[in-house]
């Protein structure tokens, strides 16, 4: 049986799991995670096991729905991301990471973007006392380390997957550039793409920017109103967030989001209202924040998206053993 292409739904589990291509991809992913753990361990990070359910989770954005869990009669949520727990964990350790499973019931329009899964994993990193520059440097080093090890140690796998390792020459050869959200909006409008200045770069716009770059780059300074309450608002430029996305070149698009975090109680409650959240449901988190949590910065790197980029896959579902596309009933 020939292996289906990205335009079709994932095949049945046996076909998918026994395909040589899948085994190459998942083997490569295993290697990438091992390298990421080694890199972060050498930098003094502690790996913690992530929570899976909680009374609240990351409110997220772009219309994704959370999954409710009946926890002894209380409405709990599956983690859409463990951001609130990452901040809390810094009370015990100053540099932490998770390899965290996330579930987001994405809008059905994402089924065919080639880059959305309803269930996926993030390499979730948080650093107490860090600035955005600190974690941008860390993320660039982390991505560079993993890609370098793959290129040097697993060239045969890349070749078997049809991925030209020359695609990473620029990535390994220099620093990732930075593009502000405002500049990105301007660029897209000049190219005839109607990008809103108040919103996240839409998927089509992101693909355009991604195609124009030869190495990954950082999109920074999103406007308030496009992201969650925990992304820190600039004190010198109100309305601008101290956050970023890492965008892969060649049209692969966003791999990672991160930011400096809000940690001041009053600012967080106000930002919760600005994002339409009900502070009452964040009781445990706000209690912690009120009595003090460390300032921090961090990011979540999508494991399947990173794998897709390194392996040169058509679709992100090919980088997971049991793919769950938005709205598609699957094992």
């Amino acid at each position: 049986m020939s292996y289906p292409d990205a335009a079709t739904a994932p095949p049945d589990p046996r076909t998918h799991l026994t395909a040589e291509r899948t085994r190459h991809v998942l083997g490569l992913q295993h290697r990438m995670l091992a390298e990421a753990r080694a890199f972060l361990g050498a930098r003094g990070f502690t790996e913690l096991l992530p929570p899976v359910i909680g009374p609240v989770t990351d409110p997220g954005g772009r219309g994704a729905k959370q999954v409710d869990v009946d926890f002894y009669g209380h409405r709990y949520k599956l983690m859409t991301s463990a951001i609130l727990y990452k901040q809390a964990s810094l009370l015990g350790f100053s540099k932490i990471f998770y390899v965290a499973p996330n579930v987001r019931l994405e809008p059905l329009e994402t089924t065919n973007t080639s880059r959305h899964l309803a269930e996926f994993h993030q390499l979730d990193v948080e650093v107490a006392g860090a600035s955005r520059d600190d974690v941008l440097g860390l993320l660039q080093d982390l991505v560079g380390h993993v890609v370098r090890r793959v290129v040097e140690d697993a060239g045969d796998v890349l070749e078997a997957l049809g991925r030209d390792s020359g695609a990473f020459a620029d990535l390994l050869g220099g620093a990732f550039g930075r593009l502000s959200h405002a500049t990105a909006v301007e660029t897209l409008r000049e190219l005839g793409h109607p990008q809103s200045a108040d919103a996240e770069i839409d998927w089509a716009g992101e693909a355009i920017l991604s195609e124009k770059h030869a190495r990954p780059f950082f999109l920074v300074d999103y406007p308030k109103g496009s992201r969650g309450f925990y992304d820190r608002e600039s004190t010198s430029s109100p309305g601008v967030l101290r956050n970023f996305d890492l965008i892969a070149p060649e049209g692969y698009g966003e791999l990672c989001s991160g930011s400096e975090r809000e940690y001041d109680y009053g600012r967080i409650v106000t930002r919760m209202r600005e994002t339409g959240e009900n502070p009452a449901k964040y009781g445990w988190y706000l209690d912690l924040v009120r009595s003090g949590i460390p300032a921090s910065a961090g990011f979540g790197l999508g494991v399947q998206r990173f794998t897709r980029y390194v392996a040169g896959l058509d679709a992100v579902w090919q980088a997971t053993a049991f793919p769950k596309l938005p709205g598609v009933v699957s094992p």
């Binding site: 772009r62 809103s196 919103a199 106000t270 339409g276």
Partner: peptide, 16 residues
């Protein structure tokens, strides 16, 4: 500011 940002977030999250 809360009204302004809530509207912007709605436009961001539900663009269609």
């Amino acid at each position: 500011e809360i009204l302004r940002q809530q509207i912007r977030l709605m436009r961001n999250n539900f663009p269609r």
